[in-house]
Design a protein around this nucleic acid. Structure first.
Length: 426
RNA sequence: GGAGUGAUGGCCGAGUAGGUCGAAGGCGCUCGCCUGCUAAGCGAGUAUACGUCACAAGCGUAUCGAGGGUUCGAAUCCCUCUCACUCCGCCA
C-alpha cells in the first residue's frame, strides 16, 4: 500500500512509476478523485456532528435547569438523519479509497533498469564453472526416476498433477537440504529460525500483499477465511503485524522453513515435468524488517546470503536484476538467483530477493520507533528464498550426474546425507 | 463439540436507573525540583487515527473487542459477530 499523502503531494511521480512498471497510471487519478470526494464529504459530516455534540450538551444543561428543550431536540433529530445519510456516503467513499490503495502496485526504485519484460532483465554476475559432460546430460526427472528417489506417477495418483513424492534418499535429500540451509543461515548470517503454520488468515495475506489481488494464485480452505501459504514470507512478515518495534531490535532477521503452495493458475503447459513448477514445494525463506535508510544495503546482503547457499553447494548460478516491466506488484527492486540446469542448457530461478520498502509494512501496520519519544515509522520489509529446496534438488541431480547414472553430492551435504553419491539400488 | 466467564488508554483497573467520560485511580514513562549516592519524596506532563492546514499551532471528528440498532445524546440499553480464558468431551 502506498502513502496516500505522498500521492496527493506528487501524483505525477506515482503515475510515472506505474507506467515504468507497465501498470495502469490511470489508477492514480481514480484514487485521487475518490479521495477528494471522501474528504469533502467528511468535512461536511464532521461539521454536522460538531453541531450535534454542542447542542446535545446544551440540551442536557437545559433539562437540568428544568427548561423546555423540545425545539432543540426536534432540530437535532433532523440533523441526525442528515448525519446518518452522509456517514454512509463517507463510509462508501472511504472503502473505495482503501480498496484502490490495496490494489495499486508499488512503484520501482529509481535504480531499477527500465524494460518491458523479462527479456530486458539485467545480468549482474555469474558464479561457478559450468560442468562439462562427455555424455548428453539428462534431465533431473529422468535421473530421479532412474534412481527411484522421486515418484512422480504415484504422487499424481495420490493427489493430482504437479505434485511430487520424494522417496528414500530423495526424501532424505529434501530433509538434508532444509537442515543445511537453515543451519547455514543461522550460523553464518545471523537469522533466527522460525517454523510457522502453513495456513494463514486473510489479514496476514493482505499484510504481505497477496490479497486482495492474487487470491487465485493460492489454495483457499473451503468455508474458512484461511489460505495455504504461498511462501513463508507470509507468516514471517506478519509475525510482527500491528506491532511497534524499537530501533534496537532492527534489523529483524528470520529464516523459516515451510511448504509453499501455489495454485499455478495461468501456468498451464509450462514446466510440466519434474520439480521446477509444482503445487507444493519446500523452501527456506529469509525475511528482514529493517529501518528505511538501510533497506537497499540490506537487499544486497540478502542476495549474498542466498547466494552463499549455492556456493556452499557448488552450484553454478547467476544473479540478474529484474527490470521495471518484470517486477512484481509489491516490490520496488528485485534480484533473482538462477541456477544452472545442464540438461535444459539454461539458468532457472531458484531464489528471488526483493525490497518492498514500506508497501507491506503499511498494510501490516508494522512500525518501529527510532527512540522512546519518537513517532512510530513504518519499517521496510524484504524477503528472499534462501533457497527453494525442490529446485536445488533438480540442480544437484543435473549438475552432479555421472556417466553411470549416479549423482555426486556436494561436499557440504555429505555430513547430512551420510553418503557421497546417489546410486541405483541404494 | 458442550458449558461458562470475560474483552476499557503502554500495563493494571474504576465506571450500568444513558447526559461535559477520551474516560477516576494506580503503575510505568518524560521533564523539572529536592536529595552525600541510590531509593524515596514533591510538581508538571504523558493515547491514537483522520480531516482542516504548512505532515506547525489551533480547531473539528472518531475511537472503551468489531459491526449494527434505539436516542437530541451510549463505555453505559438492545441485536449480531469475533477473539481470549476456564471446565468437560475428543485427540497427535
Amino acid at each position: 500500500m502506498l502513502d496516500i499523502r505522498l500521492i496527493r503531494a506528487n501524483p505525477d511521480r506515482y503515475k510515472q512509476g506505474l507506467s515504468r512498471k507497465q501498470s495502469n497510471p490511470g489508477l492514480i487519478d481514480e484514487l485521487l478523485m475518490a479521495d477528494d470526494a471522501w474528504r469533502s464529504h467528511l468535512v461536511e459530516v464532521e461539521r454536522l456532528k460538531s453541531v450535534r455534540n454542542r447542542t446535545s450538551e446544551e440540551i442536557s444543561r437545559m433539562k437540568k435547569q428544568g427548561q423546555d428543550a423540545t425545539q432543540a431536540i426536534a432540530e437535532m433529530k433532523s440533523v441526525g438523519e442528515q448525519i446518518k445519510e452522509l456517514d454512509e456516503q463517507v463510509k462508501d467513499l472511504e472503502a473505495r479509497v482503501h480498496n484502490l490503495l490495496l490494489e495499486i502496485p508499488n512503484i520501482p526504485h529509481e535504480s531499477v533498469p527500465d524494460g518491458l519484460s523479462e527479456e530486458e532483465n539485467a545480468l549482474v554476475r555469474f558464479w561457478g564453472d559450468l560442468p562439462k559432460f562427455d555424455f548428453a546430460p539428462r534431465h533431473h526427472w529422468e535421473i530421479a526416476q532412474d534412481l527411484d528417489i522421486v515418484d512422480f506417477e504415484r504422487a499424481v495418483k495420490i493427489t493430482g498433477s504437479r505434485f511430487v513424492l520424494y522417496k528414500g534418499l530423495g526424501a532424505k535429500l529434501e530433509r538434508a537440504l532444509a537442515n543445511f540451509m537453515l543451519d547455514y543461515h543461522i550460523a553464518h548470517h545471523g537469522y533466527t529460525e522460525m517454523f510457522p503454520a502453513f495456513i494463514a488468515n486473510e489479514e496476514s495475506l493482505i499484510g504481505t500483499g497477496n490479497l486482495p489481488k492474487f487470491g487465485d494464485e493460492m489454495f483457499k480452505l473451503e468455508g474458512l477465511p484461511y489460505y495455504l501459504i504461498p511462501t513463508a514470507e507470509v507468516p514471517l512478515t506478519n509475525y510482527h503485524r500491528d506491532e511497534i518495534l524499537s530501533a534496537a531490535q532492527l534489523p529483524v532477521k528470520y529464516a523459516g522453513y515451510s511448504a509453499s503452495f501455489r495454485s499455478e493458475a495461468g501456468s498451464a503447459g509450462k514446466d510440466t515435468r519434474g520439480l521446477i513448477r509444482v503445487h507444493q514445494f519446500q523452501k527456506v525463506e529469509l525475511v528482514k524488517l529493517v529501518s528505511p535508510e538501510t533497506s537497499y544495503d540490506e537487499l544486497e546482503s540478502l542476495v549474498e546470503d542466498a547466494a552463499k547457499i549455492l556456493e556452499a553447494l557448488d552450484m553454478p548460478y547467476r544473479v540478474i536484476e529484474i527490470c521495471t516491466g518484470d517486477l512484481g506488484s509489491k516490490e520496488t527492486k528485485k534480484y533473482d538467483l538462477e541456477v544452472w540446469l545442464p540438461a535444459q542448457q539454461r539458468y532457472r530461478e531458484i531464489s528471488s530477493c526483493s525490497n518492498f520498502e514500506d508497501y507491506q509494512a503499511r498494510r501490516a501496520n508494522l512500525r518501529f520507533r527510532r527512540d522512546e519519544s519518537a513517532k512510530p515509522e513504518y519499517v521496510h520489509t524484504l524477503n528472499g528464498s534462501g533457497v527453494a529446496v525442490g529446485r536445488t534438488i533438480a540442480a544437484i541431480l543435473e549438475n552432479g550426474q555421472q556417466a553411470d547414472g549416479s549423482v555426486k553430492l556436494p561436499k557440504a551435504l555429505i555430513p547430512y546425507m551420510g553418503v557421497e553419491t546417489l546410486a541405483k539400488g541404494k
